[in-house]
Design a protein around this nucleic acid. Structure first.
Lengths: 221, 221, 221, 221
DNA sequence: AATGAATGAGTATTCATTCAT
DNA sequence: GATGAATGAATACTCATTCAT
């Protein structure tokens, strides 16, 4: 076995161990909250000794940043928008929301739960999170916004505010679910389409605006 | 001085003391977060001794519930909807959002900040909060929803999901602000109208207003 | 009971508690060494709870500095030299050493033991100790040295070095005792006079230098 | 290559490794103190892995004993006294002190610093140190003391106490230097002669030198 | 009721030591 | 022998809570 092999093997083992610990941390932090969870809890959940955690993470807080990093590595926001160049707005919005929701749900709601609750409480994490996750998403989204903002027509809402509103809706629905809303829990799959519909058309009923007689066919199907 | 007078005086003093302590708690919790803040911090901020706090609140956690109670007492959700019986949907949505935002901003974002962050982490608080604040709002809103949901027209979105989406948008925008979004901070006053516009019409550009006769084909398919 | 009385009572109680804790710390640190001794050890020895110690001292290290402070307050080096203005050198040296030894032994060898061992290991303490204890002693001693340094006769040894030599002798004998020398332990009372004799006359036997025929009468008595 | 050769080679390598580790330990312990220094620090300084140290030393404490052993092996106290049979006392004292100081300074003050500070705190080490270093020195010195103690003349001081005083002076001056005395640091070279002068003649001024015929009155005033 | 000193359970972190490779 | 990852006991310090005054 060459030294090179050794090194890469070690690197692999180390990264696997890191993952194992982060998985445990996610689980434990989500259950008890970051502060109430102890390093011992995480160690037990990961099946290692307390001290071992410190071979891989500087401190308890570093575990949170580790979660953030891993989340960051997973995300591929760019792609979404790139694919969308040729799509029509409605399709894009639906696709985008569906994808984001699938992502969130799969990557584990838990990670968001943990990060979100600490983000509200820990300034350093808040800044890192905003810089690494929120701001980039907004930046890319703003670029894309120009695809569906017909330049000749006046926007009803300032695009930047609109962006916050849309992002906020996604985030807020997630928070409502984390707060224990059971309807969202049971019907989570329907949420992205519902949001998409609201975003695209507002609360108007399918046919006929509440005051206008519209021949519009928003959704023929 | 009658005993009755004594009692009511005592009650008054006690309630004033409680308020004084809760004010201090709000300030301190908002600054340092619930866990990092100590009872001593709150006591100092309130200008009382540590032990005194325990004459008015069972435990540190009880302070949070105290904040919740006070918030609850302040809120007057019912009224809004009652007033709205005769309004047109658009006006109602605008009025409602404006009022809620004013409320939140005035009552102090701080209280929400504190409650929200703990709600995500503390099951007991989460349940109380949902039961006392979220659920009632939803219940009333659902009742009202029937005013603008023309029974004969098919809704595009399930009303309950729609409700979550709308509530989520408000909540989410708030969270984004708490997360440090500076645009929301500087343009907070414009947010309720922007949300109202989005809720009413979606992201469509200005032409095809809800009061205009639109031949609009939002999505030719 | 007036507020003033209250305050001074509290101050008295607090200072008594401090003393009680420092006594315990002295005992425990001397027995086990500063590092090996735990706060719990000190607390047990003082008959208080662990946390109580932190009501009076910032940290474990602050306990050491507390020992130093108390030592400092006790010492009255100035006086010795003042009294000596009229004494003859020999008498002074004897008196001085006897007094110092009595002091050290009474104030507790333990305190020196503890401070000395940490001084050798802790730079901050070392500097404080040197500044507060050693340097002042040297300064005063140098002033006094002019009483017995007959100006017209050439000194054999540089006075500053001599000072170090004498101080070193005292210190060194103390260290030897702390290192467990049993002879010094059993005959500790004779040590100051022995040192005085050595300091005054060197190792020469009572009469007649080993190689010189001296009619000298170093010490007629 | 015979097995014997193998063995001696191995022994050589092993002893070299031990030396390498002890050198590292000396350096690290002197810098950070025994307790604050970690095995990892020593290992890094020695360029080996943590575990390797345990192939050569039982425990962290054993490293100290290792330092002691090496010091012991280096010392050659006997010799000094042997050589001295024919010397005059004054010359011997001067030579002896000079040699000891050179030794200490060269062998590295660091080793003494480390050992001394631990000796004050660690009973086991204290006893070993006393038995291996201090006691033998005293024993030999006592033997020699009979060369210059003219049996017929009465000693002014008990020889054993005198011995402690002289040894203490050397030790004490060393400790003062370790405590940061800057004068001793800059004028370290002059110290042995100063001590010798004090030991031989006491603090008397130059007139009445040890070789001059003095009608000396130590202290006219 | 108010006080604040005393309490002691609770915890992040360190580090000597072991042992599989 | 050499390695260094894993171990887990050990410990300074914090802070919610109590209670004598």
């Amino acid at each position: 076995m060459t030294r090179e092999t050794d090194d890469s093997l070690q690197a692999y083992v180390a990264s696997a161990r890191k993952s194992q610990i982060l998985d445990a941390a996610t689980k434990v932090f989500a259950e008890k909250g970051f502060h109430r969870a102890t390093i011992r809890d995480v160690a037990r959940a990961a099946g290692v000794a307390d001290g071992t955690i410190y071979n891989y993470f500087e401190s308890k807080t570093a575990l949170l940043l580790g979660l953030l990093d891993r989340l960051n590595a997973t995300e591929q926001r760019e792609v979404d928008f790139a694919q969308s160049a040729e799509m029509d707005v409605a399709d894009f919005v639906r696709m985008y929301l569906n994808q984001r929701f699938k992502e969130v749900t799969a990557t584990s709601l838990d990670v968001f739960h943990v990060l979100l609750s600490e983000v509200l409480v820990n300034q350093e994490l808040r800044e890192t999170y905003y810089r690494q996750i929120v701001a980039p998403t907004f930046a890319v989204a703003e670029q894309y916004a120009q695809h569906w903002a017909s330049p000749e027509t006046e926007q009803r809402i300032d695009p930047q505010l609109m962006l916050r509103a849309v992002a906020g809706m996604t985030l807020g629905v997630l928070v409502l679910r984390l707060m224990g809303d059971s309807l969202l829990q049971t019907r989570w799959d329907e949420v992205p389409d519902a949001l998409a519909a609201l975003i695209l058309h507002g609360i108007k009923p399918a046919e006929g605006d509440d005051h206008a007689t519209s021949s519009g066919t928003d959704q023929p199907a």
